[in-house]
Design a protein around this nucleic acid. Structure first.
Lengths: 249, 249
DNA sequence: GGAGGTACACTGGTCTGACCAGTAACCCAG
DNA sequence: CTGGGTTACTGGTCAGACCAGTGTACCTCC
C-alpha cells in the first residue's frame, strides 16, 4: 500500500492555478482584463494580500500586467519569451552556465533553423529574404542604425521560413543572454564599415544556400559565423566543446 | 538632448533586486538563510506585505523557499533549471505549439546532444554508459519499472557526456510537453516486451556510435528513433517538417 | 454642438496590526 | 544522557486603512 506525500497547497497557489488554467484553456485571451483585485478577492473568497501574491507570481511569469489606477483591471498578456529569457539569464549568472555552453546551444539552434529554412522555404519566403538583403545593402550606405534594422528583418524572414517559433525564440533568448554576458568586453566594437561589409558577405552566402535549398550549407554557414564572431570570448580550453558542431555535417 | 523614460519602480521590486544581487554576487550562498520577514521589513524599511511580495517573486524564480514555522528563515536555493522548465512549458502551452513543432525541436536537441556526447565523451562516460546498458538488459527481465529506471540512467549518462546542461534540460522539457500533448493517444501502449526489445536494440546502436566517437551516427540514430516513435501522431501533412532533419547529415 | 477641462469613482501599491497553525530549539524530568 | 513537552518565533492569511494615479463621464465654455 502506498500513500501520496501530503503537500500543503497555499491559497495563493490555487488562485494562480485557476487563472493560469483559464489562460491556457483560452477562456482568457491576451488583451482581456481580469477583474480588479477587490473583485477577485470576493470571487476567490480570499483576502486581498492573497490575491496580490498570486498576481505577483503571474506577473513574474509575464502572464499579466497591473497598472495602478487603471479601472479596467489587470491585463492578460500574450505569451512571450521574456520569462524564458529571465530564467535562462539567471541560470547563466548563477554561473551554472558558461559562455561556451550558451554558444554551443546557440550554434545548435541557429544551425538547425538555417537548415530548416533552406529546406522548407517557399518562394514567398525567398522573395522576402532577397528584399531584406537588398535593404541591408542600401542600409550599409546610410549608417549603422539603418543597416541594423534591415539585419533584423533578414533574420525575421529566416525565422518565418523555418516555421518553428519555438526554435527561433529559443535562439533569440540565448542570443540575448550571450550578449549580456559579454557586453562589457564587446564595447571596443572595431570599425563598423568593415564589420558591415563582412556581415553582408555572410548574409549573401546564407541567402545563396537557402536559395539552393542547401540545408547543410546554410547550417554550416550559420554555425561558422557564430564561431568566428564569438569564439574569441570563450576560454581557449573550452573551445573544443564547439568544434564538433563545425565539422562537415 | 535625450531623456530617459521614467520608470516607476515598485518597492517590492527593489527588494527583489537587492536580494537577487546578493545571491548573484555570491554574498548569499545556497543553503544560507534570509532573515525572517519581520526582520527583512525593518532592514528594508518597508511593510511586511511588500517583503512578502518580493519573496513570492523570488520563490517563483526558484531562488528561495519559505517554510512556515521554520525559525531559521527562508532558504536560499541553488540555481536550478526548474524555473527554465516552467517558463518553457508555459510558452509551449500558451503558444499552442503543435506536436510537429515540438517534435522538430526535440529532434534538433536530442540529435545535437548525441552528437556532442559521441565527440566529447571521456572513458569514464563510456564506462557509465556501458554499465547503464547492462542494467537495462537485466531490467528487461525483471519488469518494466526496473527497465525504465535503467533507461533513465542511460539518458542521464548521455546528458553528462555532452557537458551542456542547457541543451539537455531543454530537451527534457520539450519531452515532457510532448508527452503531455499525446498522453491520451499513448495509452494503448502495445505489448511491452517487444517494445523493450526494440528500445534495447536502439540503445545498443547508440552506444556503439558513441563508443566509436561517431557523432553523425549517434545523432542520426537519435533523430530517427524519435521520428519512428512519434511521427504517427503527427498529422501526415506536417511530417514533411520533420524529414529534413533525418537526411544524411 | 463640439472641444476642452475637471471631478469622481475606482484602481493598484503600500502599511499596520492582528490571528492561526506550524516548526525547531530549549529545558527539564526521568 | 535521553525523551518529551514548552515556548518563542516562523510564515500564511485576513481585515482595514491611506495614497497616488488613471479613465471616464460630465460639465463648462466657446
Amino acid at each position: 500500500m502506498k500513500f501520496e506525500p501530503v503537500a500543503t497547497v497555499r491559497a495563493y497557489e490555487r488562485v494562480v492555478e485557476q487563472i493560469e488554467e483559464a489562460v491556457f484553456s483560452g477562456r482568457l485571451k491576451p488583451g482581456q482584463r481580469l477583474p480588479s483585485e477587490r473583485e477577485l478577492m470576493v470571487q476567490f473568497g480570499v483576502g486581498r494580500s492573497t490575491v496580490r501574491e498570486a498576481l505577483r507570481v503571474l506577473q513574474a511569469a509575464e502572464m499579466v500586467r497591473s497598472r495602478p489606477g487603471d479601472p479596467r483591471g489587470p491585463e492578460i498578456l500574450a505569451a512571450s519569451p521574456a520569462a524564458l529569457h529571465r530564467s535562462m539569464h539567471r541560470l547563466a549568472k548563477a554561473d551554472h552556465l558558461g559562455l561556451a555552453e550558451l554558444l554551443q546551444f546557440r550554434m545548435v539552434l541557429d544551425g538547425s533553423a538555417h537548415l530548416l529554412a533552406a529546406r522548407l522555404r517557399t518562394e514567398d519566403h525567398l522573395a522576402t529574404l532577397i528584399a531584406a538583403l537588398a535593404a541591408m545593402q542600401e542600409g550599409a550606405e546610410l549608417g549603422y542604425a539603418e543597416f541594423s534594422r534591415a539585419d533584423v528583418a533578414f533574420h525575421e524572414a529566416i525565422a518565418k521560413a523555418t516555421g518553428n517559433p519555438l526554435l527561433v525564440t529559443s535562439g533569440e533568448v540565448v542570443h540575448g543572454v550571450v550578449l549580456e554576458l559579454i557586453e562589457d568586453k564587446l564595447e571596443k566594437a572595431a570599425d563598423r564599415t568593415s564589420l558591415m561589409r563582412a556581415w553582408l558577405a555572410h548574409h549573401e552566402d546564407v541567402l545563396r544556400a537557402i536559395h539552393d535549398a542547401d540545408g547543410q550549407g546554410a547550417s554550416r554557414l550559420a554555425k561558422q559565423a557564430l564561431y568566428d564572431n564569438y569564439a574569441e570570448y570563450v576560454p581557449a580550453e573550452q573551445r573544443r566543446l564547439l568544434e564538433p558542431l563545425l565539422e562537415r555535417t
